[in-house]
């Protein structure tokens, strides 16, 4: 029943700078089923945005996919030429970027920019395309779309621009939507609106979504599956319940501990993850999290751990999960809120 729409296998992406090779993504694998919403969580420099650009094949010089496979609907797109990607990008895979202020072209109207995608990929006439553009604007909740369609981006506020971006991304009914920090630049109330919109659209169009963010709160609401990235590697992968209620990797636990919980009455001191992320020009030999991990052992700094399967959907990369590892008392950071039934 669950058809795999995207499968990434051992993807490695590097940037070749004058200082040396920056290994932004160092061998990650995950898969996404049709209609699934997956969250990729990680801090800046974890490789989450590079992953999305690799899938879109939008890496700019000096970035390059070093090795690995990306299967989209069963086809490997790593070796596809730019010309072939043009038919996939925008049509079958669409993307929403972080900054709504710069991701729209200021000299074309919103309508023109939506129509461009529709005409390019669906070959509709100009008139039909305009009707569709208006429909799309209505779908993403822009009031009076008939008038708004001929507005320029500067006449839109930040939240409306992000809606317009969503309208462009969804206008060809893509099978996969990649949203790279779509709400980071927005206010909470607007973020709330956009997340609701994405949930609605998922239900209406059955699009698969990859949501990239550094905010665990954002993924908790709409993602069914979560991938936690650190230092160019997937640290832990599981359903959202696995990640929030049964984290197995100290980094995931650290993330959970470092955010204050508004809904819980307590006002405890936050437990931050100390230190800073590793320099990926010289990635650490062992586990990249060793330097910041409160449970780090000798082996962590010397050898990279393998994935341990916790159950069918849940796996983590940590020596603590090895059968020989000493039993350590850990603060998992899980806080369960009161659910009002």
């Amino acid at each position: 029943m669950s058809e795999k729409i995207l499968e990434v296998k051992n993807l490695k992406t590097s940037f070749y700078t004058h200082l040396g090779e920056v290994q932004a993504v160092r061998g990650i694998s995950f898969s996404l089923n049709k209609g699934e919403v997956m969250g990729i969580v990680g801090e800046s420099g974890s490789g989450k945005s590079v992953t999305s650009l690799s899938i879109m094949k939008l890496l700019q010089y000096p970035g390059e996919i070093k090795s690995g496979d990306i299967f989209f609907k069963g086809e490997d797109i790593v070796n596809k030429k730019n010309k072939e990607m043009l038919n996939i990008r925008g049509n079958e895979i669409a993307m929403i970027f972080q900054d709504p202020m710069t991701s729209l072209n200021p000299v074309y109207t919103i309508g023109d920019q939506i129509m461009e995608v529709i005409i390019r990929h669906q070959g509709l006439s100009k008139k039909k395309a305009k009707e569709k553009a208006i429909d799309m604007l209505r779908l993403v909740g822009i009031p009076s779309p008939e008038e708004r369609v001929s507005n320029y981006p500067y006449e839109f506020s930040g939240g409306m621009r992000q809606r317009a971006m969503a309208a462009i991304a969804l206008s060809c009914e893509p099978d996969l939507l990649i949203a790279d920090e779509p709400t980071t630049a927005l206010d909470v109330t607007i973020q709330d609106q956009i997340l609701k919109l994405m949930k609605d659209l998922k239900e209406k169009l059955d699009t698969s979504i990859i949501l990239i963010t550094h905010d665990l709160g954002v993924v908790a609401d709409i993602c069914t599956k979560i991938v936690v990235m650190y230092g160019g590697l997937v640290m832990e992968e599981g359903t959202s319940k696995d990640i929030f209620y049964n984290p197995k990797h100290p980094y995931t636990m650290g993330l959970l501990k470092s955010i204050p919980r508004l809904d819980l009455g307590e006002k405890k001191r936050l437990i931050p993850i100390t230190g800073t992320p590793p320099d990926l020009i010289k990635p650490p030999k062992g586990c990249p999290f060793t330097a910041r991990c409160p449970y780090a052992m000798k082996i962590c700094s010397l050898h990279a751990p393998k994935y341990t399967k916790i159950d069918e959907n849940h796996k983590a990369m940590c020596w603590l999960l090895h059968k020989q590892s000493p039993n350590m008392k850990m603060d998992t950071g899980v806080k369960r809120g009161i659910v009002n039934e």
């Binding site: 100390t274 330097a291 052992m297 000798k298 090895h322 020989q324």
Partner: peptide, 16 residues
């Protein structure tokens, strides 16, 4: 895996 590999490392040594 040898036993000594499971020794904890002191956090202070790690100049992050």
């Amino acid at each position: 895996i040898p036993e000594d590999m499971w020794e904890k490392i002191d956090n202070k040594e790690k100049e992050s």
